[in-house]
Nucleic acid binder design. Structure first.
Lengths: 217, 217
DNA sequence: AATCATTTTAAACAACTGTTTAAAATTCTT
DNA sequence: AAGAATTTTAAACAGTTGTTTAAAATGATT
């Protein structure tokens, strides 16, 4: 596929990325990486000093990949609705290519929550300010139901990312092959879009907007 | 809280459950369990023969716990709508009490997908037959939008279970405390219920039901 | 109280972990 | 082609891993 001549450093990095994604940090041994890269154990530490350092680089990259869509899309000057729909499409494409990216990331952040990640501040800014402001404006204009901005992203990407995190169980319970899971995921993406539209943008909310918020608490 | 006199076997099992839930199988050492239980390493193997056997028992229990709600609720003779709403409520309660149950289970099933689990066949039956039949009936009666049964559960529980799987990241990005995450989760549960109702049960689908299915593919 | 089985412990075990060493092979520079 | 710098390797390192051993402590039975 790609250029076939890779430096040892690149071979190790790619192999490590693949193994870490599959088995996580604590499930992966230095020898796993050496074997997968076709090199030996010492070379890993020659280039990356330690397993932890190598993991750190890769985790950074993969977290960037995870945030990429969000950051790019929310910088574009299009309507909120377009942004959300594009988020779903792009998120779907990302997970199709990296089926266990989300499970891996959530796991590792759970394992060490204080890991310093470059994109965190940018993500914070998007969620706490940009998106929040945009949502308030749309609500004011009556184009969207009354909803706290914090809940929008989980509602939108949650249901889609969820089926990839549950992929193994899902496939087992519904007797799926890789192919049929692929079809399932694409359909689910479309359902998710429909659901989000019907919930957030359906004119039904305008009725409620005149009365009280229908949420308890 | 509970009765304070536990046998060593119970102390070890409870400690192991707690540590496994937090750090997963490969992140947990026999010495972690010994320390957490206030006993020593040899006693773990005296009662459970091996780390893997101990983990097996606990994983079975926790997977049962995860399936419990679904199995119980889908045996009740109430309407589909009531079942789905109760699913969300019960699922929320379960995750409130075991915040990293889902992440743990998905992880371990991902690590060894062929693990023999007692509830799998029951879950298969529910999803592939009972729920499927019920959904078809509701669609025929025009009480629910036209949707494949396989997608209903992920749509319903996905968005809620998702925020617990992403808890660490969520808390970090939105600068949450445990308390504010709790509030957030409860609100999200309510949003999820609203969204599901508006998507599945809103009378809007009756318009579409006369025409073609709006889903591409 | 003596004998038994059961439970607990400290210490050791071999296998595996991440890492380092020092020598060999290779590439680059002159 | 000779020498220097870089890359690769095999072997070993100390520390940790899951597991076992064998002796001690405890409890039950007679």
């Amino acid at each position: 596929m790609n250029c076939k001549i890779l430096s040892s450093e690149e071979k190790i990095r790619e192999a490590a990325k693949s193994v870490f994604l599959r088995k996580g940090f604590s499930g992966t041994t230095a020898r796993d990486i050496a074997e997968a890269s076709g090199t030996n154990i010492a070379l890993t530490n020659y280039y990356f000093r330690s397993k932890e350092k190598l993991f750190g680089e890769i985790f950074q990259d993969l977290f960037s990949l995870y945030c990429e869509n969000t950051i790019r899309i929310f910088e574009r000057p299009v309507s909120l609705k377009e942004k959300l729909m594009e988020m779903i499409e792009e998120d779907y494409r990302l997970m199709k290519e990296n089926p266990n990216l989300v499970l891996f990331i959530m796991n590792e952040i759970h394992r060490s929550p204080d890991y310093p990640l470059a994109e965190l501040s940018k993500m914070r800014d998007i969620f706490r300010h940009k998106l929040s402001e945009e949502v308030r404006k749309e609500i004011r204009l009556g184009r969207i139901r009354d909803i706290s901005a914090d809940h929008i992203m989980p509602l939108i990407i949650g249901s889609l990312q969820f089926i990839f995190m549950c992929k193994s169980l899902q496939m087992s319970v519904l007797d799926m092959t890789e192919a049929s899971f692929g079809e399932f995921a694409e359909k689910h993406k479309d359902y998710t879009k429909e659901m989000v539209i019907s919930f957030l943008f359906s004119p039904a909310h305008e009725v409620e907007a005149t009365g009280k918020n229908s949420l308890p608490g």
